[in-house]
Design a protein around this nucleic acid. Structure first.
Lengths: 249, 249
DNA sequence: CCGGTTTCTGCGTTTTTATGCAGGAATTTA
DNA sequence: TAAATTCCTGCATAAAAACGCAGAAACCGG
């Protein structure tokens, strides 16, 4: 087999699978590892692959690892925020969790909106405070320094006293079978209370978090009314959720 | 699995869920914990994650940037803060109002101090959150956008349920005859409740505000236990307050 | 077709890298 | 304060890379 042929084959494999192992290539093509290594080196010098210990990676692989713009997937979150805002009407009581998606929602609220927003998340409350027309109600209790949100029985009791029109949940993981799951016990307790109190529960989730699972269960899929993602509502990924009876935006 | 792949996976998880545990990662990827730790360390050095004990956090999550704007009379306030801190012992429950003097107090708390701080002021709570050892209790209710503090009957009711060892009041105006006075009706209601609940009331005031009066009365001079200013305790300005029975620092 | 030259390839040897493991230190948690 | 995690350091090992070399193959001008 010619050198050029071999390299073409390697490049093809890299682009196909995003990675190759020198070890497997050398058995496939039946040449010594040195040869493979030399090939990979050349391809790397030409910028066609990224050489790493043990093999090589495609370029596309490395691109995702650069979360340049502060918040991860900000554009998706903006899309989600705008869809969520369409659900809010003047005069509504809206309960929200914390998280970067909710932050984006808070930032994107139209200035003329007059509604009451309730939350226990400090960063989110800060955003709400800048809004000229909304009323802001803060849920008080002990503060969890990790999640920057108030947690504890007082907070939960307070939430149980209210009956908001809408509840927006920033989601860490959602799955048809396991429902919403999360990784912080106290935050989960709070979210449970929020879901129970609210007339309508809206789950905000970027597509990447769909069909993922975390250790602690928040609620089943049936307790959610609306699911908002950045995807088109007809995206096949969302199909199972539609079938489960959720409204999908 | 290649090292780069593994790191890409970790990074992805961090950005997706805002936090990862080394322990769960090493079972997921099936490598030793040391390897995970080394990966996290590398990623942290590249600034892609924030390494913490037990795992790592996403970078975007942690930056609740607060403006360090030039506070009026900051040096005086620093002096006051340090005097005030000398009153706090480990294990105490401390109730504080809002205001820039209290902010300075919050910023100056020694890192080893272990106490519980209670407040309804958002900016002050933000400062408390950065402290490694104190517990932070947030008083919830409607937020007054002017003063960035929670006000209302719920907040007052909550304050009445607690019995803090110390109450630090940032002061707008104090006068021997009229006591503490202020200009925001709702904030005054809150301060009244704070004073009533607390075992000892400490009034923090820069010298400029001494012997000034505002329209709404908070409390009489006799309800204050300690007065802290940036002045020397023998300063003649403070004499009348000493005579009235206050301890002056 | 033939020497000379260049390129390519495989094989040992040496270096570097990646990973796991043991222990003791440090930190968190109860 | 005591117990349990987690972290760090040094070390051992195996895998992979680098290096030098030599034989093989290809290329080339006569």
């Amino acid at each position: 087999m010619l050198k050029k042929e071999r390299q073409a084959y390697i490049l093809h494999q890299v682009n196909l699978h995003n990675k190759v192992l020198s070890s497997s290539l050398c058995t496939e093509i039946k040449v010594s590892e040195d040869t493979i290594r030399r090939d990979l080196q050349e391809l790397a010098e030409e910028g066609k692959v990224i050489k790493v210990h043990g093999g090589a990676l495609s370029h596309s692989f490395n691109d995702v690892s650069l979360p340049l713009n502060g918040v991860y997937s900000q554009n998706q979150k903006k899309t989600i925020a705008h869809k969520a805002i369409s659900l809010i009407n003047n005069g509504m009581f809206v309960l929200t969790s914390g998280g970067t998606t909710i932050m984006e929602l808070a930032r994107s609220l139209p200035p003329q909106l007059k509604a009451t927003f309730i939350s226990g998340s400090i960063p989110v409350i800060l955003e709400y405070m800048y809004h000229p027309n909304i009323e802001v109600i803060l849920i008080g209790d002990k503060i969890s320094k990790n999640s920057k949100i108030t947690v504890g029985s007082e907070a939960i009791a307070k939430i149980k006293q209210i009956k908001p029109d809408l509840c927006f949940l920033g989601t860490n993981a959602i799955d048809v079978k396991h429902g919403i799951t999360d990784n912080d016990w106290e935050v989960v307790q709070l979210k449970k209370a929020m879901i129970e109190s609210s007339k309508r529960v809206v789950c905000l989730s970027i597509a990447e978090k769909i069909n993922t699972v975390q250790p602690i269960r928040v609620c089943g899929i049936d307790e959610i009314d609306i699911l908002i993602t950045e995807l088109n509502e007809n995206d096949p990924v969302l199909r199972p959720y539609k079938d489960a009876g959720l409204k999908v935006l």
